[in-house]
Write a protein that binds this DNA or RNA. Structure first.
Lengths: 360, 360
DNA sequence: AGTCGGGATTTGATCGTTCAAATAGAATCC
DNA sequence: GGATTCTATTTGAACGATCAAATCCCGACT
């Protein structure tokens, strides 16, 4: 048993502290069950031997992997806004660690590959549940996961799903409409009256929601709104072209609110080209916006991560909850974004960077 | 044993196929040891029962986690170039999956927290080794890992380490000097003669290496080189200021090669402001470069990922190699980057994007 | 016919932990 | 004083796989 070589096991600790295995286990998992004196003795032995429980042994016995799977999107698909997932992933990893939960990555090309991956990771007890991102209109993954009774939480609302309040489906999202509303009101406070909206073509849940925020706050007549609302693919060049067209029209707008930083970048390009300086606001507060000094709507990614974990495991539990009905309170949460104001009046310099070794 | 409820175990399959557990295990891990007829019978049973081996049980017994840890950098630290890590992570996850290896994320604030995390993940048998990125000058992590004999490979050379060919240290990197050389020669082929270099301030290993590529290929007199080489923090605004200064000087350069896309973006901003159209080349080929139509040096991230795994586990093994001496061939690899030409003559449109639902 | 060899398969032990139930010991109650 | 309760600890049996060694089987060789 207690071979002096190799890493120590719980039995080695038990022997050293003159107690049984189970008592050591209790010191680690249920310290309240152990007499203080005994506990100290065991803790001493743990310390002395540098004992750490073997993760796989524990997972085998408890039948819990304490691991959550999350997909890393193909880089090609996320463009500039990929950094949103990036920031979210970081926050999620940190918050999960606080609960003793690990984050396992997986890659998958296409829906079916992803469903297969869901199945495999669950069947092999590799993960207890999933965090799903980049939800689309009528996302097949959602219905599949619900149907298979696999625990998951999505970052992103169930666009195009009949009942958004279905308790079997747990989700967290950021109120995009409110974000755009804030952006619109901000440029209005700078004096703009004819605020244009640069968004995406129609079959996009997120896009429509963001546009809605503009509709609610731009204060324009319907026919004028139609003129000042454009929808283009999420690329700077596309946006630049569309914005140029608006600027060269007979009644150009006097500010631009955009559905993404890519679009905002395009708008800014078109403006610079004409030597104009009209307010532009982006969405997602990516590094590009920071680099260009563009104002942008920022998603509270750390709060989103926390909310995701709360929905998955309860307020402060470390165990994934299978049945959403066991979860007290609502099974979805809509968080408010923040507007990061840059350039113009704002003191441009807020964040201090120092490292240049950003490579590799 | 074979309770009809719950997920099936290897014993259930054995019973169904009228063989022993071990034979089933062999069908899965060493099919060559099993008689074809028996194998088919077992495979049938596996299929029928939908059996999948329990990852933790396997890991406990084999004493191998088949998992690699990688740190997710704080978002604040990586800026635009964060997408390099992003792309690498994606490639790594895909390639690792091909070898039956999983990628586990961890977060850590500061070196000491990261060393503690190394220790914990290894002691708990959570991972078999690490992939280390964002290596810095005299990186303490490297020496620590070598000292502790923990298997790892770094993406990034050992800047400031005495012996870069020390076999105990396995690394993969991209030849930045060659990349900048390609960039310089490219703008020269467009007619530029006075190519400026926009890099970072001195104590940066990567920065110096990239600058070296320019020194080797710019073909300028030493005193002229001194004039056309600038070093600023990795921010677009900083670069814009520096480039503006060069442009307004008595002998302005006629092209700009930059150490990053952030810097290239700044250079482009300064140019657009002046209505000039001089060639600018960035580095890392981030989404920003694509959005702005900037040429950029692209790192072969997928190849880097493959090389990292080869150094960690051998040409096509699925097991992390502890002792680098057991690895045939060199323990480090320097890969060549590629120049992605955009704008100007190049057909601007190559990659087709369609999704707008890039959110969340 | 007997022994050897080697491929195919089985057997028993083990990896390191936690669960569930049993036990020991002290305190409480009537 | 004896039954009862409660707290602290121990015991034996899993969890589900693989390792190492044993066994079985069949054909070949002497």
């Amino acid at each position: 048993m207690a071979r002096s070589t190799g890493t120590p096991t719980i039995s080695d600790v038990a022997k050293a502290a003159r107690v049984s295995r189970q008592t050591v286990s209790n010191v680690i998992n249920r310290p309240d069950l152990v007499r203080p004196e005994t506990r100290r003795r065991v803790e001493g032995a743990i310390e002395r031997l540098r004992y750490r429980p073997h993760a796989s042994a524990r997972r085998l016995r408890t039948r819990r992997s304490s691991t959550i799977g999350i997909r890393l999107d193909p880089v090609s698909a996320n463009g500039i806004s990929g950094s949103v997932l990036d920031g979210f992933l970081h926050a999620l990893t940190e918050r999960a660690a606080e609960r003793g939960i690990r984050i396992l990555l997986y890659a998958a090309n296409g829906i079916d590959a992803e469903l297969a991956e869901f199945r495999r990771l669950i069947d092999e007890s590799e993960v207890d549940g999933f965090v799903v991102t980049s939800t689309t209109y009528g996302d097949r993954r959602i219905s599949w996961l619900v149907e298979q009774r696999i625990p998951f939480v999505s970052f992103g609302r169930p666009w195009g799903v009949a009942d958004m309040t279905d308790r079997r489906y747990r989700w967290v999202d950021v109120d995009g409409a409110a974000g755009v509303r804030m952006a619109t009101e901000h440029v209005q406070s700078l004096g703009a009256r004819e605020v244009a909206f640069v968004g995406w073509p129609s079959p996009s849940g997120i896009g429509e929601e963001r546009r809605q925020g503009w509709i609610e706050s731009c204060g324009l007549a319907p026919e004028r709104m139609a003129e000042l609302s454009v929808g283009v693919a999420d690329e700077a060049t596309e946006a630049a072209r569309a914005v140029a067209e608006l600027l060269d029209s007979s009644r150009p707008p006097d500010a631009f609110v955009c559905a993404s930083d890519s679009l905002a970048l395009g708008a800014r390009m078109a403006l610079v080209e004409r030597g104009l300086e009209l307010p532009v606001v982006g969405f997602d507060d990516t590094p590009v916006a920071a680099a260009m000094g563009l104002s942008s709507v920022s998603q509270p990614l750390s709060d989103v991560a926390e909310a995701v974990l709360e929905l998955l495991m309860g307020p402060d539990g470390g165990v994934v909850i299978d049945d959403p009905d066991r979860l007290a309170g609502p099974t979805h949460r809509l968080l408010q974004p923040e507007l990061v104001v840059r350039g113009e009046g704002a003191s441009a310099r807020e964040e201090g960077k120092e490292t240049c070794d950003e490579d590799a």
